[in-house]
């Protein structure tokens, strides 16, 4: 068996989660975000979940040993969603047009009981104000299988850039 086969599925709390399920989860989320359906996006998180984007100089320090771009606890995730749904979130009104590509999806047993870890690459294309920006990086998520499907415990986006390039602010969800 190759390494890829080993990671094609992971046992979590007596269930087998396949790479196909994880890919569907990530593709679904990409569609939700591209369609600006923020209520559906919030529903992908379990209560108490976190959303993080470390800075581009991130070298693996533990949370709060260094600065971040996004350091949202569940309250802030909710506040962020509420803001983005408002017509007064000027940086995203009008909305950016985004097109997300997700690939190189791998899964691993989670460190905490009942969780699994996802690693995947992304490219997000964003069009706004006559400009076209690209964001590249990878995800390091922790998800929990529940009765209502997979839920984020930690949604973590790591940027592959040396710095956020011109125009590339993180006013939407990356």
């Amino acid at each position: 068996m190759t390494q890829a086969d080993v990671r094609g599925s992971v046992e979590v709390a007596g269930r087998t989660i396949t790479r196909g399920e994880i890919e569907d989860f990530l593709y679904e989320e990409a569609d939700i975000l591209d369609a600006w359906n923020y209520d559906a996006w919030l529903a992908l998180f379990e209560e108490g979940a976190r959303y993080e984007i470390p800075t581009t100089d991130y070298r693996g320090w533990s949370l709060h040993a260094g600065g971040s771009f996004v350091d949202d606890d569940y309250d802030l995730i909710q506040a962020r969603v509420k803001r983005l749904k408002s017509r007064k979130a000027h940086a995203e009104n009008p909305h950016s047009r985004t097109q997300r590509m997700v690939s190189n999806v791998r899964l691993f047993p989670g460190e905490e009981e009942g969780t699994l870890r996802i690693r995947a690459s992304f490219v997000v294309h964003r069009a706004r104000d006559g400009q076209f920006d690209q964001y590249v990086g990878w995800y390091e998520h922790v998800v929990v299988p529940t009765q209502e499907g997979l839920k984020y415990r930690l949604r973590r986006t790591i940027l592959g850039h040396e710095a956020l390039p011109v125009g590339a602010r993180l006013s939407f969800i990356l």
Partner: peptide, 11 residues
């Protein structure tokens, strides 16, 4: 200061 510098550019 802490590591974790926000580096970004604006138009």
């Amino acid at each position: 200061t802490l590591p974790g510098v926000q580096l970004y550019s604006v138009r």
